[in-house]
Design a protein around this nucleic acid. Sequence first.
RNA 1: GGGGACGUACGCUAACCUGGUAGACUACCAGCUUUGGGAGCUGGUCGUCCGAGUUCAAAUCUCGGCGUCCCCA
Length: 481
Amino acid sequence: MSEKQEGITAKKNDDFSEWYTQVVVKGELADYGPVQGTIAYRPTAYAIWESIQKQFNDMIIGSGHRNVYFPLLIPESLLTREKEHIEGFAPEVFWVTHGGDNKLSERLAVRPTSETVIYSFYSKWVRSWRDLPLLLNQWCNVLRAEIKSTKPFIRGSEFLWQEGHTVHATVNEADEEVMRILEYYKILVEDYLAVPVLIGKKSEREKFAGAFYTTTLEAMMPDGKALQAGTSHNLGQNFSKPFGIQFLDQNNKSQYAWTTSWGVSTRLIGALVMIHGDDRGLVIPPKVAPIKAVIVPIYKGNEGEPVVKKANEIKSALGKHGIAALIDARDDRTPGWKFSEHEMKGIPVRIEIGPKDMKEKKVVIFRRDTAEKKSIEESSVAKATAELLDDIQKNLLVRAREALKKQTIEAKDYADFKKTLEERGGFLKCGWCGSDKCEGSIKEETGATIRVIPFEQDKKIPDCIYCGKQGKEIVYFARAY
RNA sequence: GGGGACGUACGCUAACCUGGUAGACUACCAGCUUUGGGAGCUGGUCGUCCGAGUUCAAAUCUCGGCGUCCCCA
């Protein structure tokens, strides 16, 4: 492959960070904005996001949730009402202080998350046990001032997400909701994005600011750093009390409600780029790819017409199977150029049709994940493409699972823990005594934090990796994005 | 949170040290020729991150801001 500058020049294994930036920018997913940490989501990235929205909406609407929209601006007095919550978010809140030239009497926060503003409504809307559960979700943007190390999709000052906010009569119902959503997230992330995750709880130190407890999905990136792919929180009565979300139960007794919140963001796009991309560029999992196949007609001089006509026939054959395809019949680009470009942009399947194929009634079909090409009967192209798309989707998840397995390492002792973390990163599986002190010391000494306390615990719990006392739980430590 | 490197056209880069007409490649536009792994010829368009200072003169020197990347925590 030539080293032309418009291609991806960084290697994924040599310079991961530079490689990621090139794939995102040159693959035309995003472009940097004029304000730090902001990006434009270009058509391919936005289409992937819409695909995520569709899948997740189908799941939550099916289970009785409804979509809504709440205000962007939150008065300071409201944002600061729950103490732990504001302490967690204070450093990254953007404040609106002026309307035109006039200084506002109260500062307004641009939402970093919407619990507080939403609960100001919920306190009015929830009156009776008959109003519960209240199951609402919104798709919106949020802003968090990120001063250092921003990365497109992974960490930015503005991102898109969904935030679900539900109210329940009992803690059990809230628990069930938290787990239901976590399960939906797992399906979304693994079955659609082909990104395997570990699921479990966060430690007290790492939980959402103000939460009773937080559950999480954690993915592992090829450079050995963990990425939080989504979270689902049980907020207990921590918010219902300061915000006055109360209802009268069947016994005419006033009760504080139990609330949950949960979200996934456009960060998921970053995860799929990091996990599936290669030295040629993006690899988009077929289920979320806006264009599943690109057809490249190849011809000499004035022989193009029958080839382009054939390409159109193939496109409509694919269309009948529900496969969105694009014909690239530009005559100012050579086939090789087109191949490189579509590979860089991650289109899962390419179909090449030229004079040789026309004679034999065949086409060449190429799969992006393994870069394999083969010649097939033209009459079977739709079926073959559908099968190939399925196979690519499966293969991406299998490959990613293997990588996750290799990057999940049992630490023998603390020296081994530090050595492994330093050399290759990954999830370090070990015992933990449950003390915040050990967790904090490890973070200070190594930069690693408890990413997840898995729900599925082994029978035998090893001693704490740090203090050597009786282990309470098995946990996974990692450095994280 | 700490440290380092760097900002010149879409991109990559030269001129910077030693102040004096910003140049190459690529991309882009037009035309012609081309098409099975980043095609050729001819012509053309586009640039010194922002602000202040020093100077007759600033891409170049000084200060500040903004931005990007890397390493460590």
